[in-house]
Simulated scan of single mutants.
Amino acid sequence: MSTEHKITTQQVNFKVFRFNADEDYLPYYEDYSMEVTSEEVVLDILNRIKWDHDGSFSYRRSCRHGICGACAIKVNGRSTLACKESMNDMVDLFGSELTIEPLSIKRVVKDMIIDKGDFWEKHEAVQPYLVADIDENPETENLVSPEDADALDDADLCIQCGACHYACPAVAINEEFFGPAAFAAAYRFSADVRDNSEERLKTVNEMGQGVWDCVKCFECAEVCPKEINPIGKITKLHQMAFQEGIAENNVAVRHAVGFKKSIEKRGVLDEGGLVLYSEGPSIVKHIPVALRMFTKGKIAMPWAIPTSDNMDEIKKLVESSSTAKF
């Protein structure tokens, strides 16, 4: 017995970003109202705007199979791969009023097309290739075991769409910061058993540009169309830095160490103690904020911080999960 798939339609209003760097002084938005079917994805809407409303509307597209990453844009501020995102899901998430914008408004060349020069420069900076001594005339294959292949943790599936890069708030305010896609690439090759680069891990551990400036907002994990979880790779690069003994004694590294020590000591996070451990004497600059937090009940004195009733279990978990020396 076959079940017939029923196609549904709904009215959706689109507010679409428009700008031509060669002609326009300021960007503007154009409104389009369409009947959207349950079978359409966001890329279908971009096509319909160009084919049925304005032939000058510009955007990137290529494979339409979620492989190349060319059609990444933002819908209601959320980075998305246009060929993969269902319109039904977008309407369920945001309602029938949708704003379509490029990944980065300040980098727009024309409409949805942006200059991704910064993205590729940062990608190149992390040595996104194997560094290894090879035999030009090998007699056997350079085999990689399934276990070693699994260690890459799907980082090799990244399609360089830029969705995570331009969703990252650290990238938005810090031009030096490499960004989650570059870190995923750095992990992919640093975790490869065939690689012997000594510089890559040092490069991504530099303050300002490296993994220690990640703010742990999880935006990269939320928007990745391939579900690669870039922040997971950033955490593993932290661990590799400790394992290789190249983690420097700076605020960010001490913050990671202090977090572990706090959980190990009480089973809960002592936020005031964490700041003191991380910043040392320079903590005095935070006193005004700390006092306001204290009056609002957002911070507790050291003697008022509770200790978990399950410390034996917590200490075992910390010991079993800590694979690197701090």
Rank of each mutant, 00 (worst) to 15 (best):
M1Y: 08
T3F: 03
E4I: 15
H5G: 01
I7D: 03
Q10D: 00
V16C: 07
N20M: 10
P27T: 07
Y28A: 02
Y29I: 07
D31L: 07
S33Q: 11
M34W: 00
E40V: 08
L43V: 00
D44R: 04
K50D: 02
H53L: 06
H53A: 09
S56N: 14
S58C: 12
R61W: 12
S62I: 04
G66M: 02
I67K: 02
G69Y: 06
G69E: 06
A70G: 01
C71Y: 04
K74Y: 02
V75D: 00
R78L: 10
S79T: 00
C83P: 03
E85M: 00
S86E: 00
S86R: 04
L93Q: 03
E97V: 06
T99V: 15
T99I: 14
L103C: 08
I113G: 02
K116I: 05
K116Y: 13
G117N: 13
D118I: 12
F119R: 04
E121T: 09
K122E: 06
E124W: 07
V126F: 00
L130E: 03
I134Y: 09
I134P: 04
N137T: 13
P138T: 08
P146L: 10
D154N: 12
D156V: 10
D156Y: 12
L157F: 13
I159W: 07
C161T: 06
C161W: 07
A163S: 14
H165D: 05
C168V: 12
V171K: 09
E175H: 14
A182G: 15
A185P: 01
A186K: 11
A191K: 09
S197V: 01
E206D: 14
G208D: 13
G210F: 11
G210M: 12
W212C: 02
C214G: 13
C217A: 11
F218C: 04
I234M: 10
I234Q: 07
Q243Y: 00
G245Y: 10
V253M: 11
V253C: 08
K261D: 04
L274N: 03
G280K: 12
I283E: 05
A300K: 15
A300H: 15
M301W: 15
P302D: 14
A304F: 14
K315D: 06
S321K: 13
A324L: 03
F326S: 06
